[in-house]
Design a binder for these strands. Structure first.
Lengths: 243, 243
DNA sequence: AGACTTTTAAATGTCAGACAAATAAAATCT
DNA sequence: AGATTTTATTTGTCTGACATTTAAAAGTCT
């Protein structure tokens, strides 16, 4: 891990990469303490600020955590699913907004992934997750709900569906896909009638999950996808011809 | 974005979060230049090293890029799919290795997601992607191939399948799931017979994709998943009773 | 002796000021 | 006009210092 040729790029980036490699390859294990900043500076033959910049890079990825005080230092962090979620959501959101991904593309991806969860969810969903879905459906039916609140509730509903698969890896992967769609969905204005339609689909999904009927869940998801894409298309067309 | 109460945590983390929020919310747009480090230091009433640590955090997430020289500075980066891939692979790999996710869980997630791509891939795969899959199958049949090389080729094969869906969002989401599995797969020793079996499944998948037969692709993937999980189970049992 | 308080040492967090290197625009020269 | 040199700006790095936090060691009192 000591390797550090002084030729090409930023020293702090090189040092960060060296430590990152050591973590990923397992040379540094969880909760192990890194040498102090002064020691690392000596080891890499750089100054302490440079080492610190490298450590901050790693901290930004939740690969290490730092602690002050006598027994403090930088420790290899056990990456939690929660940390991974939030990073993924940030990344996915930016990816979608910065690359001008078409609504259809994002929508297709989201529902393809969600349908992958559905059969598992139909088998494993807990009563608790079912209750969450019912509660969100109830919330969505409230009059006077803003469009944004409606979307947030929609995300919570689908999140419960995904978590029903009882597979943390799947939940992690899908958190990005579902939540990153929210800003795009927020561009849609939901009329009372369209809300009613969406709630009907949600109810159908919840009912089918309760009955552990995977096929019906899948069918309802396809319908919901079609309907959502139609809504977005209408909005786009109305924008083109505003009068 | 100027807000910065000096109460709780590290200043550099706060500053990074403030700038990150400005980017995510769209206040700072792609390719826009941030104020110079000296100006930021003045603006936030901190020293330049503190600002630099904050910027390094953002650089670690590929949110900004820096450039030296007269017209240099820190610029809001257009997050590329490629950057997002590599970040996701690092995160997923660590998540799997650090949290001792069971092989079955990861495997289930991977194949669930891959099956989500399959119908799209059956419709849209290009001749080029098909050729890649054939080439990887050919490589997998070479005698004297190490287990690691076999796994790497396996990843490349499945990667081509996923890319066949022609949906960058899906490709991005699945890159992590597929590639992060590789270290786990590397723990399996592939006998000549098991390689033969896997190659047979791969061939079946490629044939079905060529024929645009989504149903057969799905069926073959299920078979491959079952077989892979059986292999892993055998390895685990042999470890328990080594004699 | 045991419990409490004080001191001390080690570590990260922050600051100030300086110089090096890169880079493009401005100024200068041929 | 074109090529060259100068200059200014900005990031990258270094040195040295002080502040803050924290736990262990030392000391004190009952």
């Amino acid at each position: 891990m000591k390797i550090d040729p002084q030729k090409p790029a930023d020293l702090s980036a090189q040092i960060a990469q060296a430590i990152r490699d050591a973590i990923v390859s397992g040379q540094l294990i969880v909760d192990e303490r890194l040498p102090s900043e002064a020691e690392l500076a000596e080891q890499f033959q750089v100054s302490r600020p440079t080492v610190r910049e490298a450590l901050k890079r790693l901290a930004a990825q939740s690969l290490i955590r730092t602690q002050r005080g006598a027994t403090g230092g930088a420790f290899v962090n056990r990456l939690s699913f929660e940390d991974a979620y939030s990073q993924q959501i940030t990344t996915s959101t930016l990816l979608l907004s910065m690359n001008a991904v078409r609504f259809d593309t994002a929508c297709e991806a989201r529902y393809a992934l969600e349908r992958a969860c559905a059969p598992l969810s139909a088998t494993r969903r807990t009563a608790d997750q079912l209750a969450t879905m019912r509660a969100e459906i109830f919330r969505q039916a409230q009059p006077g709900l803003t469009d944004e609140a409606f979307c947030a509730s929609d995300v919570a509903f689908h999140r419960a569906l995904v978590d029903g698969a009882d597979n943390p890896v799947l939940s992690y992967q899908l958190a990005g896909a579902v939540e990153a769609m929210q800003p795009l969905m927020n561009m849609i204005t939901f009329t009372a009638r369209s809300r009613e339609a969406i709630i009907a689909y949600h109810t159908k999904i919840a009912d089918a999950l309760e009955a552990k009927d995977a096929e019906t869940v899948d069918f309802a998801l396809v319908e919901l996808e079609t309907y959502t894409r139609q809504l977005a298309q209408d909005v786009a067309e109305r924008k083109r011809k505003p009068a």
